[in-house]
């Protein structure tokens, strides 16, 4: 909650680092962290969703393979896809949040080419016309 507090516009790096440390310390850390982050990224409050995306990207850089394999599952990718789809949370999420979610998924197709589910999810978004160009 502190790391994604929408009333504070600056990133709270100390909190974000503590969050990453907790993710790394717990056996089920990546699973629980991604559930929490999905919920925050789906927030209709733009500031909260954008902070959560920053936390997610920091975890990707600092939490290693256990985190990568969990985020590359359809379980989490579907939660990101819901933010982009007008059938789910897309009507409440801002364009800024949606474009960052798209950027995140695209960057993972480049950084994790071996993760087939990420490629599948991105191809599906393109096929459905949600990601253009």
């Amino acid at each position: 909650d502190e790391a994604t507090d929408p009333s504070i516009s600056e990133e709270n790096w100390e909190c974000i680092q503590r969050f990453c440390a907790q993710v790394n310390a717990a056996a089920e850390g990546p699973l629980f962290a991604l559930r929490l982050l999905a919920h925050k990224i789906q927030s209709p409050q733009e500031g909260e969703a954008l902070h959560a995306l920053t936390v997610l990207e920091t975890c990707v850089n600092n939490c290693g393979e256990r985190f990568h394999s969990e985020m590359a599952k359809f379980r989490f990718l579907n939660e990101l896809i819901k933010v982009l789809s007008p059938k789910y949370y897309g009507i409440w999420s801002s364009e800024k949040v949606k474009s960052r979610v798209t950027e995140v998924i695209f960057s993972w197709t480049v950084w994790f080419p071996q993760e087939v589910k990420i490629q599948d999810a991105y191809q599906m978004l393109k096929k459905q016309g949600i990601v253009k160009g």
């Binding site: 089920e28 599952k73 379980r75 579907n78 819901k82 789809s85 059938k87 589910k117 599948d120 459905q128």
Partner: peptide, 15 residues
């Protein structure tokens, strides 16, 4: 202290 964790994944959402 062992906990059961279902590792099965969902399907890709159809949107």
């Amino acid at each position: 202290t062992a906990s059961f964790h279902d590792d099965s994944d969902e399907d890709l959402l159809n949107i």
